[in-house]
Design a protein around this nucleic acid. Sequence first.
DNA 1: TAGATTGTTAATCGATTAACAATC
DNA 2: TAGATTGTTAATCGATTAACAATC
Lengths: 233, 233
Amino acid sequence: MTDAPAARRGIPGATVARLPVYLRALGALAATGVDTVSSEELAEAAGVRSAKLRKDLSYLGSYGVRGVGYDVVRLREEIARELGLQHDWAVAIVGMGNLGHALAAYSGFATRGFRVAWLVDEDPAIIGRTIAGLTVISFDDLASEPPQGVIGVIATPPTAAQAVADRLVDMGVHSILNFAPCVLNVPDGVEVRKVDLATELQILAFHEQHTREEIDGIADLAPVVEEPKEATS
Amino acid sequence: MTDAPAARRGIPGATVARLPVYLRALGALAATGVDTVSSEELAEAAGVRSAKLRKDLSYLGSYGVRGVGYDVVRLREEIARELGLQHDWAVAIVGMGNLGHALAAYSGFATRGFRVAWLVDEDPAIIGRTIAGLTVISFDDLASEPPQGVIGVIATPPTAAQAVADRLVDMGVHSILNFAPCVLNVPDGVEVRKVDLATELQILAFHEQHTREEIDGIADLAPVVEEPKEATS
DNA sequence: TAGATTGTTAATCGATTAACAATC
DNA sequence: TAGATTGTTAATCGATTAACAATC
């Protein structure tokens, strides 16, 4: 009945999580002047299988040309649009410790659609200081400017994180990136993604240990006594 | 034939990735003096469903007691052992920009089984400086001390990341945490986990946009003309 | 047209969940 | 024993993959 792109609704979560990777790869291609790319090439650049890439892109609509490939600029725009990156998003970082400080100065945000707009801390010794060109404000100051469509970043110690999340939610924030190693409880409709640095290392430790066991030989763990082998066959 | 715990091999990846979360929750419980916990309570603390928790734990063996629950200290030890956290792991951080600097000073590593042992940069202006109590060394310096069973952390700009990964792999590192927004190519047997901060925000932007569309009303996007409804059935 | 590559189908694989028998 | 809770089964769900018909 309609020409509208097929599945606007219901893009699988796993696909959404990969769109930024494709976007980045397309940006790199565009920078080098490439204007058409096949699913095979783009998949290679993004570190995925081409079948997966094509399936992912098919959820956005039909932006490729059979026998030719994808127009780099066009596809990049479509993905950016799907992710809501036609305009920049404002970000509020709460917690100006080591990590918050580094995030405030991180250049990778600005180049990929985000503008760090507020730095927040509760420590009077830190409020008022200038970090990365911004003045650190208190939570009350933040609440006084209504942060519309802001993404909140929590970089406080875990003990403070839930209270911070509660205040952000009260202000109308419904997207939160949490660096504090703890579980946050938020109402329905609020999206929390978490980045836990120590957890990432612990997952690597698991693999490191198991690689190590293979190298050292499993014999150490469960000494194998070789049966005298029959000379048959 | 044997009493040995069932599935030592073949713990699903999704389960491994959750074990650190359980470990953290158990640590918090132990700190408050709780000595027994049910799957329902622990799941609540870890932010998962109890059925998932029990299934995850069943891969490690049978450490619960029916009708009672899990011994907090015991379970914590078993998970730590499974993850390879009986001893600390040494970490080498490469790239002493904002992020590398913050990671070097991050207190969350030490408390969860990791010791930042080397800070590496290639900039002569940075080599020799002291950061978080450690002297920044060059790559050649790092290569001279053979880093056994080290976990490598890459916090360089994306342009340098592949070369850094290659050098780490040459030194025998086979577990890498990559903060540079780029795809790393490594040989089989080397495990790379990646943390891309801007990607996390872009995923949130997707949800933020779609939440916003719902609030603003979908009518704006695809004006619906109501068909005069037949009064049948 | 012939060659190339997309978009989609169908099969497979892995992860989640509910339910409950086993058992403390 | 009666009540509680684990460990496991079986069903469901979602994601990945290979293969290929559609089509530029």
